[in-house]
Structure formats: structure tokens, C-alpha cells
Design a protein around this nucleic acid. Structure first.
Length: 469
RNA sequence: GGUAAUAUAGCCAAGUGGUAAGGCAACGGUCUGCAAAACCGUCAUCGCCGGUUCGACUCCGGUUAUUACCUCCA
């Protein structure tokens, strides 16, 4: 039984899918006005791992996410660059794919842009007005936060406090338009002819920030969904407002389990676009040749914990991942000469650690304990690979176990690097012959030659093995 | 000010009322023509003070520090 920490209750709860065997989940995507930074990637990877584990556990997951492609920042960026808004949005939506594919983030089942659902948004807002939860004011449409019972409970914020804070921040114009400072916009009137807008019953305008997610979740999933995810900073106001809008419209519980990922910090400070202390994934990929190491770091930290991104963290992640890859290879190179059959005690140990892995992940996706189980398998693999004789079934079981569990973290390619050019293969064969007659001069020369080609050769009691540098 | 989170070895990081998983790094050893990899071993008393208890790192009270949210933010 999977247990998840629900931000709403602040407790770990047993996870029950609305429809047995199926999970509907919605995860907030980025605003496409710049390249995504590590923090965005962390969120995407955190929920990618959750999705993969749910799938590993047998669920069919319907994963919906969005691109916010119309908002103040995009409009501003477009003006700065002298292009229209959709040029900006198109560019960075495409960049999102270019950055997330190397990180092996599975594409959403459905990923929609806000601007692709404008008619649905207008219908949603009309319904809110009709039900008395929203009102038009000078072309804007605001949601009556206080009319919605339990407003703010997700973020556990006190309504009076929020109201006082809101009043202090808003400018006079906004205060005049709102019935209450705490009300939030579901539709914004267009104030300039050169900014993107759509015709609506309230004049030309564009959607408010929160409305798109409510609309998409309902349109592509259901009135009530199993899991809604996003960064912890979205609990308020974004998700708080989503709940208010959605439940005001449907009268149903919007989300059963609210999951929020922790931040990536830089030097123990939050990384964010507004602070300007962010590193884009685009830059990282350009300067770091192994995207799986980045993935490893982000995927193996428990999703609610902060990750402190410092110079050493990637290096440590690289070392850990290399240990796992090495163990996989060590067994892999014995498979071709393995005897048929299996070894009971090793098979038993493998099953036990797979079981531990599942127990860890069932407990609110405790990736640290899960990775510890993989390291137990690593030690077993290294020991087994050094035996004089190994059995095919067990060796295969070992490599598959490691690969399958790593795949839950979205780290694959453990065996994909184990292919060679004909030229390199010829050198390796030649070296085997040289070693057979103890011609170490030639053997070492060939090893250097292979090394120059990026292939590291190692000699073991059981023969020669190699890997790419 | 309000609401939360975190504080475990050089570093990352689990965990629990009964004498602290795992990993990285380091050190010692084994194996080895060399190299590499691997294996074996060594390496903490859990921010601070007080309380409850036969016994607390784990519960309670207090305290300190750091961080985050309180309508730009994953």
C-alpha cells in the first residue's frame, strides 16, 4: 500500500485511487518565458519519478500538465524583444522539450497550453459568475474568495491575515476594482492594444494565472482527480485558488492528494527566477556531458526535501551513479560465459532487496532508502561477478533488477553504452591473444590505444572487460 | 508579526523508546605483470538546556540557528 504526504492534511495518508488501477494526476508546468532552471527540472523530475513508481506498481497513469503561455512576464519579454507573445512562448515551449528529453522526463500524457483552452476558460468563468462566485469589474473578473468556504486551508493561512497582507500590497486601482482585497483575478482586461487578448463577454482580455489549471484538470481528467502536484511555493496562492475555483464550479472535491516538492537551494538560499540566482538546464546540459548525473541528483533526493545545489553535489552524484553502472557492467561481462541454471541464495537476496525498495517507495517515495536497496544489490552484483562460475538465470536477474529499479528513477542506458565499433572490437580481440602469450608490452600498448579511443580496458581473473570513458 | 520546515560523522543522507541504514571522501588490507575495478575492514552518540522513563537521538517543555511561505516564482 502506497502512502503519500498530503499537504492538505499534513499527514501521510494511504493512497486510494478513485478508479482502481488508474491514477489521474495533474502537475503544474512552467511559464514559458525563459529556459527552465534546475528548480523547474527538479519539480518535473520529482513527479516523473512518482509517476514512474506508480506505473511500476501497476497503475495506468494519466498525467496532465500545462504550459502557461500567456501572462505578464511573457508579455513583457515579448515587448523587450520586439516580437509577439506567441513567438516567445513557442521558443521556450520547444526549449522545454529540448531540455527535458536528455533528462529522460517522460512526456505528459496530455500537455496543453493555456491559450489552447481559451473557450473552456471563458465558459468556466461564466459559470463562476452565474453561480455568484465571481463578478465582473471594469473588464476584469474576480473570484469572491470569502464566499468559498475554507479558502486558504491548503496553505493553512489565516484569512484575516491574508486579507491584511493583500491590502497592503495592492495598488489603489486594484483595490477599487475588487470587492475585497483578497479576491483574485480569473480574467484580466486588456489595457493595451499591442498585447495579446481574446474577445470575451467582458471585453478583450486574457485569463488569470490560476484558471488554466482548473480548466485543464477538469477538461482532460475529471472533476475530482487523484493527485495534484507542483512546487511547495504554489500551495499559496496558486493551488489555493485552484481549489476555490474548481470546487465552486463543480461542488466536488477537486483533488484527493496534494503533493508538493521542495526547492533547489543555491548556497542554502532558494533558487528562483526572481532572485536571479538560477542555473538553467539549457546551460547545464551544454557544460555537463552526462545528463543522467543531473537526473540522478534530482531524482534520488526525496521529493519533499530541499536539494542544496553546490559545486560538490554533482560530483558526488556522479561517483554514486558510476558505482551502480560499474556493478551492472561487472555482471554483464560475465553473462556470455555464464553456465545455465541459477543460484538460490543470490536469487533470494535479490528478491529481498527488490522488496525493500518497494517498501521504501511505498512510504511517500522514500528515494533515499530505495537507493540504499539498490546499493545492496550493487554489492551482491560485484561479489557475484567475481565468482569463478556464475549462472545465467541469476546473472540476468541481477542486471535486470538493477536496471528496472534504476528505471524507476528514470536512469537508464545501463547497457546501452556497451556496444563497440568493429575497430575497437578487433583491438580487444588482439589484446586477448597478446595476454594469452603474456606479451604485456603489446597488451599495454593496445590498452593505451583503446584508451585514446575512449575505451577503458580492465583485466580481471575472469578475463578482460571494458567500458566507455 | 503569522504559518511551517530543517538541525544526525569531512560531505550527502536514512532511521528509531532499548546502545545510529546506505553512499561519497579518507585510511588500512586482499586480489593483480602493471593499471583499474571490486571485495574485506576502520571512521558519529544524533544543535543546546531541562523533564518523563529502567532506558531517548527517538516523547514533552524550553532555547538557539538556518530556510521557506504570507497573491512574480517549481
Amino acid at each position: 500500500m502506497i502512502h503519500v504526504y498530503n499537504t492538505l492534511s499534513r499527514e501521510k495518508e494511504a493512497f486510494h485511487a478513485i478508479t482502481p488501477g488508474k491514477v489521474n494526476m495533474y502537475v503544474c508546468g512552467p511559464t514559458v518565458y525563459n529556459y527552465i532552471h534546475i528548480g523547474n527540472a527538479r519539480s518535473a523530475i520529482a513527479f516523473d519519478v512518482i509517476r514512474r513508481y506508480l506505473e511500476y506498481s501497476g497503475y495506468v497513469v494519466n498525467y496532465v500538465s500545462n504550459f502557461t503561455d500567456v501572462d505578464d512576464k511573457i508579455i513583457q519579454r515579448a515587448r523587450e524583444e520586439g516580437v509577439d507573445e506567441m513567438t516567445i512562448a513557442d521558443k521556450y515551449a520547444q526549449a522545454f522539450d529540448e531540455d527535458t528529453i536528455p533528462l529522460n522526463i517522460k512526456p505528459a500524457t496530455t500537455r496543453s497550453r493555456a491559450t489552447a483552452v481559451i473557450p473552456d476558460i471563458i465558459a468556466f468563468v461564466e459559470d463562476l459568475i452565474h453561480k455568484g462566485y465571481a463578478y465582473e469589474s471594469a473588464g476584469d473578473v474576480y473570484f469572491r474568495a470569502k464566499k468559498f468556504k475554507g479558502y486558504g486551508i491548503l496553505a493553512h493561512q489565516d484569512l484575516a491575515e491574508m486579507e491584511a497582507n493583500a491590502a497592503g500590497r495592492l495598488d489603489d486601482q486594484e483595490l477599487t476594482r475588487k470587492e475585497d482585497p483578497i479576491d483574485f483575478a480569473v480574467w484580466k482586461a486588456s489595457h493595451s492594444s499591442d498585447e495579446i487578448s481574446w474577445v470575451s463577454p467582458w471585453g478583450k482580455g486574457r485569463p488569470g494565472w490560476h484558471i488554466e489549471c482548473s480548466v485543464m484538470a477538469q477538461k482532460y481528467l475529471a472533476d475530482t482527480i487523484d493527485i495534484h502536484g507542483g512546487g511547495i511555493d504554489l500551495a499559496f496562492p496558486h493551488h489555493t485558488n485552484e481549489i476555490a475555483q474548481s470546487e465552486a464550479r463543480t461542488g466536488q472535491t477537486f483533488v484527493n492528494y496534494w503533493l508538493h516538492n521542495g526547492f533547489v537551494n543555491v548556497n542554502d538560499e532558494k533558487m528562483s527566477k526572481s532572485l536571479g540566482n538560477f542555473t538553467t538546464v539549457h546551460d547545464m546540459l551544454a557544460h555537463y556531458d552526462d545528463p543522467m548525473v543531473i537526473r540522478y541528483l534530482l531524482a534520488t533526493t526525496q521529493y519533499r526535501r530541499p536539494i542544496n545545489y553546490a559545486p560538490d553535489t554533482l560530483e558526488q552524484a556522479r561517483a554514486e551513479l558510476e558505482r551502480i553502472r560499474t556493478a551492472y557492467r561487472n555482471v554483464f561481462f560475465r553473462i556470455s560465459t555464464a553456465k545455465t541454471g541459477h543460484d538460490d541464495s543470490v536469487d533470494y537476496a535479490i528478491a529481498e532487496h527488490i522488496s525493500h525498495f518497494r517498501e521504501a517507495m511505498d512510504d511517500d517515495f522514500n528515494t533515499q532508502n530505495a537507493i540504499a536497496s539498490i546499493f545492496e544489490l550493487v554489492t551482491i552484483a560485484n561479489n557475484y561477478a567475481s565468482r569463478d562460475e556464475i549462472k545465467l538465470d541469476t546473472a540476468t536477474r541481477l542486471t535486470h533488477a538493477i536496471a528496472d529499479l534504476m528505471n524507476v528513477f528514470g536512469i537508464n542506458g545501463l547497457s546501452e553504452h556497451l556496444t563497440l565499433s568493429a575497430e575497437a572490437q578487433a583491438l580487444l580481440d588482439k589484446r586477448v591473444q597478446a595476454r594469452a602469450v603474456r606479451d604485456f608490452n603489446l597488451s599495454d600498448q593496445l590498452r593505451d590505444q583503446l584508451s585514446d579511443m575512449g575505451i577503458i580496458v580492465e583485466d580481471t581473473t575472469q578475463g578482460q572487460r571494458w567500458h566507455h570513458a
